Simulated assay, not measured.
Amino acid sequence: MTIRQRLNKQSICILMLILLMMIVTACKSDSENVEQGINDLEADSEQLNPSEEEEGPFIPEGKVQSPFNGKWIPKEAANKRPIALQINNSLAAYPQSGIAQADILYETLAEGNITRLMAVFHVYDSEKIGPIRSARHYFLDMAANHDAVYMHYGGSPQAYSYIQQTKAPNLDGLSWLDGIVCWRDPERRAIPRMLEHSVYTNQKHLEDGWERRELRKELKENFSSGLEFVKEGEEIIPWGQRADYVTVPFSASYTSSFDFDAETKKYVKYQSGNYHLDEEINEPLMFTNLILQRTKIHLIPGDTEGRREVAVIGSGTGYFISSGRAVAIEWQKSNHGTATEYIEKKSGKPIQLNPGKTYIGILPQNLEVSFQKKAINQ
C-alpha cells in the first residue's frame, strides 16, 4: 500500500470519528431538550390546574349564602324569617326611607296610575323605613313567596278578606299595634295632606310587634324562595339581548327605568325620570338583578275606588336581566303558599341570579318594555 493510500485511509477514519462524535453530541442535546420540554409542560400543567385550595370562591368561616340575596350572612341568621313591608310609592310621599336595605323590591299597579312597592327585608338594621301604606290582596301572594310576615297600615276590603282566607301572618299598624309596630313622623304629619304619607317603622318596632303577635320567627321547614343564586364571587351573564338601559312604563305618570353601571355591575333605578332616592343614605336604589313578570291586571268590577286585580298566581312570560343582558323567561306560581318559579325560556332551566338585590316588576301583559336609552334628569 502506497503512502498516499495510507493517508487517504487515515483521513476517512478521522472523518468517520468526527461524524460519530457529532451524532452522539446531537442525540445528547436532543435528549436534554426533550427532558426540558417535559419539565416545562409539567410546570404549565400545574399552572393550569391550581391546587384544591385555590378552586372555587372563598367561603368565609361561619357564613352561609342568604336565600334572599345570595350574599354571605352569619349562619345563625340563615333561618330567620323575613319581613315584607307595604311601601307608599306616591310621588307625594317621596323621598322614601330605608328601602335601600331591602333584599327584594316588588312594584306593581294599585289604584289609578300609581304603583305601590313591597320591600322584603331579611338581615337589616335601618332605623327608619317607610312611609308604610295600606295592604292590597295580591301583595300577600308576593310575601308568601318568601315565607315573610306582611306589615301594612290598614288595607282594602279585598286585602282583609284574603288575610282571613289564607291566614296570612301580618302586622297591621291600623290596629292595637299602632304606636307599637310603627309611628307617625311629626314633621310630615304637620304638613297638609301628608298624614297618609307619615307612617314609619324600623327593626326594633317590627320585632316588638312580632313578639306581641307571637308569630313564628323561623323559616318554614323545607323552605324555598324560588330564587337560585350563583356563589358570591362568581358572575353569570345571561345569554340574551343587550340591556344597558331598561324602561318600564307602568302608566303615563309612573315609569321605572334602570341604568346599568358596568363598573359596579348594578342597575341604578329612576322613578319617572329622576333618581329613585333613599332619604336615609341620600343615594338611589340599585339592583343586581331585574325580573319583569307579565300577568293579567284589570280593574275590579264594581269597586268604587278603582282597585285592581293582579294575577300573581298562575303563569306567564317576562324577562330576567342582569350584567347588562336580558333573556326571555316564563314564570309560574301554583297557589298562595308556593314560591314563584322563574324558568329561562330557551333552556327550560331555572334562572340563576347574581348575588345582590333583586327588583321584581309585575307588569300588564300588553306593556312594552324598552331596552333603548332615553334622556333622563339627574
Rank of each mutant, 00 (worst) to 15 (best):
T255S: 06
A93V: 03
A92I: 05
P364M: 00
K28R: 14
G273T: 04
N33G: 03
I99G: 10
V327D: 01
Y245H: 12
A77Q: 14
P186N: 10
T358S: 05
L292M: 11
Y162W: 07
F260L: 08
W72A: 01
Y106S: 07
D147N: 14
S11Q: 12
N289L: 01
N354K: 03
T338M: 07
T295V: 03
S256I: 02
E344H: 06
A339I: 02
L41H: 05
L41E: 01
L19F: 11
G356T: 01
N274Q: 13
S256G: 12
E46C: 02
P131W: 00
F258Y: 15
I236K: 12
A102P: 13
K63H: 13
I114A: 09
E235F: 11
W331K: 02
I360Q: 05
L109C: 09
M21F: 11
N49M: 09
T108K: 03
K204R: 13
K269R: 13
H276P: 05
E46H: 07
M118V: 09
Q332P: 00
I329P: 08
G318S: 08
M142V: 02
I291C: 11
R133A: 03
F121P: 11
Q293H: 03
C182V: 01
V123D: 10
N366D: 11
I3E: 14
R294G: 00
K373G: 05
E207Y: 15
K167D: 11
E53I: 07
Q86C: 06
Q10G: 02
Y106R: 00
N69W: 01
A311D: 11
H152E: 04
I129T: 05
S90W: 10
A84C: 12
E55I: 15
V199C: 13
I23R: 05
A168Q: 15
I114E: 14
I14L: 15
E330P: 06
V120N: 10
E234I: 00
L91R: 13
D40A: 09
Y319A: 01
A168T: 15
G130N: 05
Q10C: 08
F320I: 02
G324R: 10
E218W: 06
T295Y: 05
V149A: 04
M194Q: 15
